Simulated assay, not measured.
Amino acid sequence: MEIRDRVVVVTGGGGGIGGALCRRFAADGAKHVVVSDIDPRAAETVATEIGGTAVATDVTVESDVARLVRGTLEAHGRIDIYCSNESWDVHVMAHVYAARALLPGMLARGEGYLVGTISAAALLNHILAAPYAVTKAAGLSFFEWMAITYYDQGIRVSVVCPQGVRTAMLAQEGKRNFLTRGALDPQQVAEAVANGMHDERFLILPHAAVGEFFQRKASDYDRWLRGMRRLRGRILEEG
């Protein structure tokens, strides 16, 4: 799908990957970008920069997500692209709430694009954070289900699965060098997303190595598990 002349909504758009996506979509000629974030000041800063609209939204509250979708439809008549881009502690249900609000209108028009910012942890686990790994995997599975179910009705679906990205979340990781090594800037992730959407690829991997690791996992699961156990041991030893 081409970005030009599309109405785009980005949640978590006040910074990090979400902010980079907003800027990229605006640069690519989107008709309008709605910058949604739980932090109204952050959303307003990005929206002012790109000529978009800021909407304060708590995506953990379904009525807030419904209000975001309803308000955008009232103002612009449609939502072509919705990027469900959430912080580390907000996972599965934010995507579900978005789908509930968006799909009826998209299906009626026979067109729409749903993009979920997930994580490489959905494919490769996270050896130090069980809740993160499990909920990211659940999010990936939900987007897979939508891609299977609604493709023939004109709905396109992509998931973005990066490893480390230089955001506030990564800064909190401190000494966990397995995440910071090879980390990308949010702008690099946004570029990968734009390219992936152009090709309508389901799985967008800003870090090419993730695809290689995923193939190794699929080809020999037990060997992959042994390797992950060794990696976990090294990380714990390093402190």
Results as ranks from 00 to 15, higher is better:
residue 87 S to F: 14
residue 216 R to Y: 03
residue 6 R to S: 10
residue 45 T to Q: 12
residue 59 V to A: 10
residue 226 R to H: 09
residue 52 G to A: 07
residue 228 M to G: 01
residue 64 D to K: 05
residue 197 M to R: 09
residue 97 Y to Q: 04
residue 42 A to F: 07
residue 14 G to C: 08
residue 28 D to K: 13
residue 98 A to H: 01
residue 184 L to N: 02
residue 96 V to G: 03
residue 60 T to A: 10
residue 182 G to A: 09
residue 182 G to N: 12
residue 139 G to A: 10
residue 124 L to S: 05
residue 29 G to C: 07
residue 21 L to A: 05
residue 116 G to E: 02
residue 206 P to Q: 04
residue 107 L to R: 10
residue 121 A to L: 07
residue 83 C to W: 10
residue 151 Y to T: 03
residue 155 I to T: 07
residue 225 L to K: 09
residue 178 F to Y: 15
residue 224 W to E: 04
residue 238 E to R: 15
residue 13 G to E: 03
residue 4 R to G: 02
residue 168 A to W: 02
residue 37 D to K: 02
residue 52 G to L: 03
residue 81 I to D: 00
residue 178 F to M: 12
residue 168 A to G: 11
residue 236 L to M: 13
residue 95 H to R: 08
residue 144 E to K: 03
residue 43 A to M: 09
residue 215 Q to F: 02
residue 146 M to T: 04
residue 152 D to S: 14
residue 105 G to T: 11
residue 144 E to L: 03
residue 80 D to E: 08
residue 97 Y to V: 04
residue 137 A to V: 05
residue 78 R to W: 06
residue 207 H to Y: 03
residue 40 P to L: 12
residue 227 G to P: 05
residue 161 C to F: 11
residue 181 R to Q: 14
residue 146 M to Y: 01
residue 48 T to Y: 00
residue 54 A to F: 04
residue 3 I to C: 13
residue 140 L to V: 03
residue 85 N to D: 12
residue 28 D to E: 15
residue 102 L to S: 09
residue 204 I to H: 06
residue 223 R to V: 09
residue 91 H to Q: 15
residue 86 E to Q: 15
residue 125 N to Y: 08
residue 217 K to C: 11
residue 178 F to S: 07
residue 174 G to A: 14
residue 106 M to K: 02
residue 88 W to G: 01
residue 229 R to L: 14
residue 182 G to T: 05
residue 41 R to Y: 08
residue 35 V to A: 04
residue 138 A to G: 09
residue 117 T to M: 11
residue 186 P to D: 06
residue 39 D to I: 03
residue 231 L to D: 08
residue 1 M to H: 13
residue 228 M to D: 00
residue 40 P to R: 08
residue 70 R to P: 00
residue 82 Y to L: 12
residue 201 R to F: 01
residue 98 A to F: 03
residue 174 G to H: 10
residue 151 Y to W: 11
residue 127 I to Y: 12
residue 210 V to T: 09
residue 23 R to G: 06
residue 11 T to S: 13
residue 65 V to N: 08
residue 146 M to H: 00
